[in-house]
Design a protein around this nucleic acid. Structure first.
Lengths: 242, 242
DNA sequence: CGGGCTTTTGACGCCGCTCAAAGATAGTGG
DNA sequence: CCACTATCTTTGAGCGGCGTCAAAAGCCCG
């Protein structure tokens, strides 16, 4: 069930303070947001918002992973975005979204009612600018994904996926070799435009090649970053340290 | 070669006046833009901007079609966007782009130097808001395309492509049955994540089924809109009249 | 220990890719 | 105006990667 927590974390000690929609806000702006916000939590698997439904609030992801997905008439589905902590849900000036938003893991959201938030956007350029940056970041990510979906092989897709998670989950430039998979094989398949069987086979193929090891179903250990990047099909310069 | 025309069309009689980045501008704002703009034309096939190059200007497409594309190490390429008249090239706050921009047909751009344009964006909310809308529109389009690339069959891809062109090219709610293909089979293949042979075969399959007819290589005549939509795999409600 | 879920593994078939060649079409120069 | 050429498109034959179907194995939680 959706849970409304009465005491959200203070903005000043919020883990996503410097990356979320509030990143550029000064103290005054922050205290306005502080007054508007509330936390909501969702269990893994819950629908957070769905296509066509009027959007009553917008939110930042604080903890956990959510996903955006679209579905064809006959039920085939494709994830069109992954929302990690600091990512934003909802869009200024629209009152519907065109996809479903689902909690992939347990999720905590920092929510703002739409009307007051939009007023704030109109008045504070810091928020509007940051929103624009976030939208453009998403657009870049979407385009990388289009290349992946349209042209990469199953093996390249899996390698790219692991590399992306490694890049986004390492803390402060320290490159960790342990990667946590925030989703099941089935969800990974929907993200990569594959079937779950193919996902499983390719994970094991990378393992057999000594590029990764699979400690348990949710944990990948990257043994050879160079080989992993090689397997993504991307240019050499797009490597891990960039 | 790039041609700089010394006398661009006046904004007030510009064909994209009400849809481009300037859509919400009032007379005063428009005259500022008028003073900043210049036209550039490119022949079909020319590179307009390329990945990693510093971005010296931003622009609106006035006539023609341009495309955004990304390339893998071994040369496989995927179009990640189609720019039709009124679409915008370039992004505030970034000095590089992550893809190549190519003229698909002969193209006329309405260009603004980046520095003065960005100053204008900071000062006039009308432009900033419109830019945000355009970015979100592109994001929606990118996500539809992700569904197509990841989950649709070749036939569904072709049907979706034709339907999209029909929808974007008809003027003022009048549904034309004649659709002009602004690109070659090879370029269509790169847009849809297919090969040119498959594109050709699927066009002819739709023709054999009586859904379209092919007058010449650049012109499609839609004979049966309902059947075309059926062939896209999308939900019933996303039909032509929406 | 039992039941449901996720993952793995195998066998097989099909859609779309590859390779190849012939057929249109448009642009060029004689 | 027409032959010539380059480019684009169509068509065919064959193959392979990934999807489909099925069943077994592993894991988690009561």
């Amino acid at each position: 069930m959706t849970v409304l927590l009465d005491s959200p974390v203070k903005c000043s000690s919020c883990p996503i303070r410097h990356r979320a929609v509030c990143a550029r806000c000064d103290e005054d702006e922050l205290s306005i947001l502080e007054g508007m916000k509330s936390y909501r939590t969702f269990e893994a698997g819950q629908l957070i918002l769905w296509r066509g439904e009027p959007l009553t609030y917008v939110a930042s992801v604080v903890h956990g992973v959510a996903s955006l997905s679209k579905t064809l008439e006959d039920g085939r589905t494709q994830m069109v975005g992954l929302l990690l902590p600091s990512d934003f849900i909802g869009r200024p000036g629209r009152d519907e979204i065109e996809f479903d938003v689902t909690a992939t893991t347990d999720v905590t959201l920092c929510c703002f009612d739409r009307a007051p938030f939009e007023r704030l956007v109109d008045e504070t350029p810091h928020v509007a600018q940051r929103l624009m940056e976030l939208a453009l970041d998403e657009l870049d990510a979407a385009r990388d994904w289009m290349l992946l979906l349209g042209r990469k092989t199953a093996r390249e897709k899996i390698a790219t996926f692991i590399e992306m998670l490694a890049r986004r989950s390492h803390s402060e430039n320290v490159l960790t070799t342990k990667v946590v998979l925030p989703m099941t094989r089935d969800q990974i398949a929907n993200y990569l435009g594959l079937t779950l069987e193919t996902v499983s086979r390719q994970f094991n193929a990378l393992k057999k090649d000594g590029i990764i090891s699979l400690t348990d179903r949710r944990h990948v250990d990257v043994l050879d970053y160079a080989a992993l990047h090689e397997a993504t099909g991307d240019d050499a310069d797009g490597g891990v340290l960039s």
